[in-house]
Write a protein that binds this DNA or RNA. Structure first.
Lengths: 195, 195
DNA sequence: TCTGCCTATATCGGACCGATATATACCGGA
DNA sequence: TCCGGTATATATCGGTCCGATATAGGCAGA
């Protein structure tokens, strides 16, 4: 699912400028679905227009620079429906916190404790930012998605609070790079393992 | 957090070849922390060695092609600890399913129902793949992280099962691109909105 | 008037992914 | 015996995307 598809999806909600798209990702309810930079959005919009999937008009506004507002064409509506109708791709997910947690045995307990504290703080901040948006979006797909995301964040906070001790005690037990195996898996050439 | 850092993190668990790294991401317990392609791994390893953070040796093995095995140097251990000690970056997350759900009003109910079915199937598959790995990783950081991930997947499945009806009934209510506002937010130039 | 901030568009370098190419070695079947 | 399929292993290339930066107009406040 590339940026062009995402632009189509947002434009399905209503016409918007490139700046609007960026602001929606950053501040709006889309933010936790992943970002999109200006460096992606403007070329994507240009190409979508070139392909006839969106059309644009210049809009002058008092007190602000002129902006170029994009809207779906009929062909764009069809392309949008087509791309939303395929089997959803797997999520793209990468977690710095996860990597740090994975390396707990090779790091001092203090480092792990701080990473956990920061993580809890970050996830609680996310919740605090998303929760007030729900009210005005009840009985709407955006509201449902907000609840979906908030439920995930809350679940993670609860898990970490309940289990952090079990991770922290593992800290600092090993020197980095000492062991020959990776996670007890990986080594397919070891003697066929147990069983 | 770039690929080089991730390579350091895995090599902290033990020496490995580029192929090992890839296999660990794909099949091992790291898989849901995000992928890494050969196109990233090999250049990353080359540069890490150039910078003196890892060292390599050729390893000939009977019945298989020779492989180049990498291990952390002392400088690499220090760089690893330094990069794990900073405040963890925000997760990178992008969800095709989330985008589809967001567009529910503009899509037929059948499409949404199928996307939800597929989503449930995918997340249950993840759970089924990760769960057997826990046993051999108990009381280890990898095991903790597996539990962390599984808890998230299970929570999402539970949420969707409990709330899918509420989303599905919203399907097909609107024509794409008709509304002027995006998600009731976005439009900063609207008349200051309703208090 | 100068500075900083918001709106708005645009571009460029570099990082990264996905596909592909290449090579070795094993195994099973025609 | 040769052929194709599979697993191991390294490497490269095109294209996509991010993050930083440039540019520019208008406004508010010092």
């Amino acid at each position: 699912m590339n940026i062009r598809t995402i632009c189509l999806a947002i434009l399905a909600h209503g016409e918007a400028s490139g700046y609007d798209l960026k602001k929606n990702w950053e501040d709006g309810p889309f933010s936790y679905l992943g970002g999109a930079s200006f460096g992606s959005i403007y070329p994507a919009l240009a190409r979508l227009e070139q392909d006839g999937l969106i059309k644009s008009r210049e809009e002058t506004q008092p007190g602000k620079p002129a902006r170029r507002v994009y809207a779906l064409t009929e062909a764009g509506r069809e392309a949008f429906v087509a791309e939303m109708s395929v089997t959803p791709e797997k999520d793209i997910f990468r977690s710095h916190f996860g990597i740090i947690a994975l390396c707990t045995p090779f790091l001092p307990r203090e480092t792990i404790a701080r990473a956990i504290d920061e993580r809890l703080k970050q996830q609680r901040t996310e919740i605090a930012q998303l929760e007030p948006l729900i009210e005005q979006e009840q009985h709407r797909s955006v509201g449902w998605l907000l609840e979906w995301g908030i439920a995930q964040f809350k679940n993670e906070v609860a898990f970490i609070e309940a289990n952090r001790e079990r991770l922290e005690v593992l800290a600092g037990s090993t020197k980095p790079g000492d062991r020959r195996e990776i996670c007890g898996i990986a080594h397919t050439d070891s003697t066929q393992a147990a069983e």
